[in-house]
Amino acid sequence: MTDNDINEEEVLLRVNNLKLYFRNNQKFTTKAVDGVSFIIHKGETYGLVGESGSGKTTIGRSIIRIYTPDGGEVYFMGNEISGPMNKQKRKYIANNIQMIFQDPMASLNPRKKVSDIIAQGLDIHHQFKTKEERTEKIYAILEKVGLSREQANRYPHQFSGGQRQRIGIARAVIMNPKLIIADEAISALDVSIQAQIVNLLKKIQEELSTTYLFIAHDLTMVKYISDRIGVLHLGHLVETGTTEEIFGNPIHPYTKALLSAIPHPNPRIEKSRTIIDYDYESSGIDYGKGVSHFIDGQHYVLATEDELTEWTKYYYGTCKEGECK
């Protein structure tokens, strides 16, 4: 991987060759994440896309250490947060990285008041001196996510899906994290509510200059919110780059297939939309053999030399001299 044009100062999170396997039984192991490397810059939104089972959620959960990785390193602002766990590291992660969960119904404890759910992180790490300070913090965060302070003493079942997701966001934001992992944070919501929540996330990013790792499978939403995108398939990061690079110049056949599946709002265009088929088994591509190739800017593709020349030769426009055959 060529990192020559990357300023180390700007890197918030660096994931290096991350591996995580689930041992189903003694003979069979699922390689959920198999050697994924990427970086996230300070203040940006990195979108992680891929079909279900591609390892998106697993990567997110490995970074925040819900799962223990089987290999590879994760650095947060130059500090390693992978490897053996201890209390200090746990606290460091909790204070800097937070997560927003997919299911707003399941991610809130039905037996707890909203105020106690939001203040959970403060309670665990004793980050308040007086009761008043705790209440103040809860009220401030409730207003920030668009809820009212009267709602602090209610229970999760008294809220709608969008409101519950706001509570989930409040729980993450109250810790003032530098990185928020939004694990399919909008997938379970109504489309109109999705826009509200995405705009809320953007607002919070502007105010607190938070960085997002945005995990999703809705490509239009990812295009809207992300600065850079990583495309995952079967535990491999097949292509990564800025949103323009990925959407304007997709190189990997899987990315092309994924982008071709986006429905178009205009029914006339939608009628003539062709879906590119992609089948890993029959494509002859072996992700294990591929290495990350630098294209341009921040655009990288996982491929072997031959595959890369094959994929780039039909491309017109941005391809450089000598590459087109």
């Binding site: 819900i66 937070q98 399941a106």
Partner: peptide, 17 residues
């Protein structure tokens, strides 16, 4: 396996908590 338990774990909660 509920998400709110995972959420508490990601906040650094101990087993006892």
């Amino acid at each position: 396996e509920q998400e709110y338990v995972i959420a508490a774990k990601s906040l650094g909660a101990s087993d006892l908590y």
